[in-house]
Design a protein around this nucleic acid. Structure first.
Lengths: 122, 122
DNA sequence: ATGCTATATTCCATATATGGAATGAAAACC
DNA sequence: GGTTTTCATTCCATATATGGAATATAGCAT
C-alpha cells in the first residue's frame, strides 16, 4: 500500500547508474529521453565525431538502456524502457547538461531525413 | 510554468552520478537516506571493514553528497542536501540494493550508542 | 601520560574506463 | 560491378577507479 507504484519494480542495477554518470552518455540519454533520434542527428547535435557517438551508444545498448532500429541507411535509437525514460525525466530536473541536448529541431548540416525534410519544407 | 518546481534546480553534475553508481556507496547512501547513522553502525550494517567504509564516506563527503558531525567518540553522517535525499528516495524504488541497508534497528555486535541503549532497554 | 576506541588517511598493485584513430560492414544509388 | 553514406567495431595508450593493508589521528577513560 505504498504511494506511487507506477515504477516501483527494481529494474536498475547500481552499476548502470555509473554508465549514466558520464558526461557524453548523459547528454545522449537526455536527448533520447524526448524521443527517438538517429545517430547522425545525435552526432551533429553534440558536435562530436560519429565514431565516438556510436561507441557510447554501443555501451548504452549493451547495458540495455537503449534499443536501436534500422531504417534504410539510418539507425534510430530510443530509450529501451519506459521506466528508464521516467527516471531520465526526473534526472533532467536535477542534472546539469549543455543546452544543446534540449534543441530538438532541425540541426544545420545534419543529413538525416528529419532535418532534410524540414529543410525542404521551409 | 512547469509542473513540479520543488527540486528543479540543477544541483547535480553528471560525474556525481558516477559516484552514486557504485555498489557500496549506493548502499551507504540508501542507508543514510532514512536518516543519520554513525560510521560503526554502517560498518556493521554492511558487514565491511571500517577502513573501507570510511574510505567510501570520504569520497561521498568530498563530492558534497554527505556531511559529518562529530559527537564524542562517534562520527555521524547524513545526506547533505534535501534535494539529494529526494533523488535517493526516487532511486530507491528503481535500484537493486541488498535488504540489509533497509534494516534500521539495532545491529548485533554494533558498539554505537543507539544500538547499546536499545540493548539496555530491552 | 598511557591505553583504548572510533574513525581517517595514505600507499599501492591491479582493474577498468576513456577517448582517439583507423578500419569494417551494410545499405542505397550510380 | 563500383561508389557513397551511415553506422559499428577493434585496437591501443593513457587516465582513473578499485579495494586491500598498514598506519595515523583524535577523543575519552583511568
Amino acid at each position: 500500500m505504498k504511494t506511487q507504484d507506477s515504477h516501483s519494480r527494481k529494474f536498475l542495477k547500481p552499476e548502470v547508474l555509473k554508465l549514466i554518470g558520464h558526461p557524453v552518455r548523459m547528454q545522449i540519454l537526455m536527448a533520447l529521453a524526448r524521443g527517438e533520434e538517429c545517430v547522425c542527428h545525435l552526432t551533429f547535435m553534440l558536435g562530436m565525431r560519429q565514431a565516438y557517438v556510436s561507441q557510447q551508444l554501443a555501451i548504452l545498448r549493451r547495458a540495455g538502456l537503449v534499443v536501436d532500429r534500422k531504417e534504410g541507411l539510418n539507425v534510430y535509437y530510443q530509450i529501451a524502457d519506459p521506466h528508464i525514460r521516467e527516471l531520465l525525466h526526473l534526472l533532467e530536473k536535477a542534472v546539469e547538461v549543455p543546452n544543446k541536448v534540449h534543441h530538438h529541431g532541425r540541426i544545420a548540416g545534419c543529413p538525416c531525413p528529419k532535418c532534410q525534410i524540414a529543410l525542404v519544407e521551409a
